[in-house]
Design a binder for these strands. Structure first.
Ligand SMILES: [Mn+2]
Ligand SMILES: [Mn+2]
Ligand SMILES: [Mn+2]
Ligand SMILES: [Mn+2]
Lengths: 221, 221
DNA sequence: ATTAAAAATTAGCACATCCTAAATTTTTAT
DNA sequence: ATAAAAATTTAGGATGTGCTAATTTTTAAT
């Protein structure tokens, strides 16, 4: 139906437009897709012709409903494949991205449906990211971040904003993963860095790190 | 490493060159890849530049060792994925081809290795075709065909020469599959058609059909 | 051996996707 | 309000892969 390149653009636009109401800019897209602004402008015009995006010259793009559904289908496949790779094929969570980036473009309605069934209809991928259903509905995802937790409070790690392999490897090193219980021991006010306790150890985390960790707060009575 | 198109050419050349010593012709390839002769000539030149084929203008192509290894890697992936689809994802054996045609191009050494392990290192795919190992070694495959079996003799179905979905669906209909025991009841000499008995039923098979069914003869004492 | 038919190649073009450099428009700073 | 800077688009070109039509070479028929 759509080319790999088109699908990659739709996905990138989807992710970037989460961050603000404004149209996604040409440069943002170029950066995110590791290509040049001129190429982005070209592709955007093609996507607009196919009614996948609304495009106003110089003012960025928005996905149309059709474009968004398409993007969600690709994201669904990406996350299902990641789940397959980690749960069934012994991939580490920081090894799956490049392969899922290819597998997400395989065209077969039946394959997606059967894969989903085979995996037990998972709601979240190995990074805690929600897996949209075939209609494009996304399960609730945690929105609270570790950075928002107050001193003395606890939470369960539910996901990550940055899923780059460098960040995932960092998490591995400090022994924090999905489901890990984290308690805020201290907040350093001048740089918002934190000391937390998890798996029995005390760990210092930068603002950058705590802003990338989603948690579900545990009510402490 | 190589484009999808290049990989498809290598695979097609590999399969066509099984049939004779002579170079694979431009028209054969065009037919097999559903493209035009002119396009084939172009691609062949590119493959020759990359030392994947030996090419003599007007006299067809042969795979080089490197081209053959490459082709075998693609065939390995194709057959492993077919096995996955049938064994794990409930695909019917005549539904897997198009999807495997896409999946065979996914680039990841680790993925192939882990998939192979996950599937239990299968030797044959759902159509009875042998799965090459990572070095390109192919397990023995049956070479005797039903058409060669004499009246009164029996064999076990081990594979098929034609694995098009129309032939597979025909086999489904007459209830013949891998492992089915087949006995030759009668051979009609004028057109080489056969009456066989399998699963308790007597079935009439054309020469075309019996020439496409591989069997391992059972010694009758 | 000559010629007709078939097969293969070349020439010229199209489309998707990418690029650099130049031009244009918008945004920011003064 | 103007000018400089930044962002974006346009122009022009490259590459990979396909096509049709014309040409060349090989093969088959007489
Ligand atoms: Mn991708
Ligand atoms: Mn993920
Ligand atoms: Mn293929
Ligand atoms: Mn097969």
């Amino acid at each position: 139906m759509f080319s790999q390149s088109e699908e990659n653009y739709l996905k990138a636009i989807f992710h970037l437009q989460q961050e603000s109401e404004k149209g996604v800019s040409t440069n943002e897209l170029a950066e995110s897709l590791d290509t040049k602004a001129a190429s982005v402008t070209e592709m955007i015009k093609r996507l607009a012709d196919k009614n996948l995006v609304d495009y106003q010259k110089y003012y960025g793009v928005h996905l149309t409903n059709s474009g968004e559904l398409q993007a969600l289908k690709v994201i669904r496949k990406h996350r299902l494949w990641e789940t397959f790779l980690v749960d069934r094929l012994n991939f580490a969570w920081d090894e799956v991205h490049d392969v899922a980036e290819q597998l997400e473009h395989i065209q077969s309605q039946k394959l997606v449906e059967e894969l989903d069934r085979f995996l037990g209809r998972p709601k979240y991928d190995p990074h805690g990211d929600p897996i949209p259903d075939e209609k494009g509905n996304i399960p609730d995802a945690p929105t609270k971040r570790l950075i928002q937790l107050q001193k003395g409070h606890k939470g369960i790690c539910k996901g990550f904003n940055d899923t780059s392999s460098s960040f995932l490897q960092f998490l591995e090193k400090i022994d924090i993963g999905l489901g890990t219980e984290i308690e805020v021991i201290h907040i350093e006010s001048f740089d918002e860095s934190m000391t937390v306790k998890s798996n029995g150890k005390e760990i210092a985390l930068s603002k950058m790190a705590t802003d990338n960790i989603y948690i579900e707060e545990i009510e402490v009575n």
